[in-house]
Amino acid sequence: MTAPRIHPSAVVEAGARLGDGVEVGAFCYIGAEVEVGDGTTFGPHCSVHGPTRIGRENRFIGHCAIGGEPQDKKYHGERVELEIGDRNLFREFTTINRGTGTGGGITRIGHDNWFLAYTHVAHDCMIGNSCVFSNNATLAGHVTIGDHVIMSGFAGVHQFCRIGAHAFIGMGALVNGDVPPFLMIAQDGYGRPRGINSEGLKRRGFDADRISAIKRAYRAVYMSGGSLEDARAKLAELAADSEDARAFLAFIESSERPLLR
Score class of each variant (00 low, 15 high):
residue 11 V to R: 13
residue 68 G to W: 03
residue 154 F to N: 13
residue 211 I to A: 00
residue 102 T to K: 14
residue 248 F to K: 03
residue 34 V to M: 08
residue 58 N to I: 04
residue 45 H to V: 04
residue 4 P to W: 04
residue 80 V to S: 07
residue 201 L to C: 03
residue 146 G to Q: 08
residue 157 V to S: 00
residue 23 E to T: 12
residue 169 I to R: 01
residue 78 E to V: 04
residue 136 N to H: 07
residue 41 T to W: 09
residue 175 V to R: 08
residue 152 S to H: 10
residue 246 R to D: 11
residue 185 I to Y: 00
residue 121 V to R: 06
residue 179 V to R: 05
residue 54 I to D: 03
residue 44 P to G: 01
residue 31 G to T: 12
residue 43 G to T: 08
residue 168 F to E: 04
residue 229 E to H: 04
residue 228 L to A: 11
residue 227 S to V: 02
residue 75 Y to K: 04
residue 38 D to E: 15
residue 114 W to C: 08
residue 260 L to N: 05
residue 89 L to G: 06
residue 96 I to N: 11
residue 70 P to W: 11
residue 242 S to E: 04
residue 120 H to K: 10
residue 180 P to R: 08
residue 12 V to D: 13
residue 184 M to H: 06
residue 241 D to R: 09
residue 1 M to D: 13
residue 195 G to F: 03
residue 86 D to E: 07
residue 185 I to P: 01
residue 177 G to Y: 08
residue 186 A to E: 14
residue 18 L to T: 12
residue 126 M to K: 15
residue 218 Y to F: 14
residue 12 V to Q: 12
residue 135 N to W: 03
residue 141 G to E: 08
residue 1 M to R: 11
residue 22 V to T: 07
residue 244 D to H: 15
residue 125 C to S: 07
residue 253 E to N: 15
residue 17 R to C: 10
residue 218 Y to E: 05
residue 103 G to M: 04
residue 232 R to D: 02
residue 45 H to C: 13
residue 47 S to T: 15
residue 190 Y to H: 13
residue 148 H to V: 00
residue 175 V to G: 10
residue 171 M to C: 03
residue 163 I to T: 01
residue 143 V to K: 04
residue 72 D to S: 01
residue 194 R to L: 01
residue 1 M to I: 10
residue 121 V to Y: 10
residue 152 S to V: 07
residue 148 H to W: 13
residue 159 Q to F: 10
residue 109 I to R: 09
residue 220 A to G: 00
residue 131 C to R: 07
residue 199 E to Q: 09
residue 236 A to T: 13
residue 74 K to T: 14
residue 101 G to W: 11
residue 164 G to S: 03
residue 241 D to K: 09
residue 179 V to C: 02
residue 206 F to W: 14
residue 180 P to Y: 07
residue 23 E to K: 12
residue 17 R to E: 14
residue 184 M to Q: 15
residue 225 G to E: 02
residue 11 V to I: 15
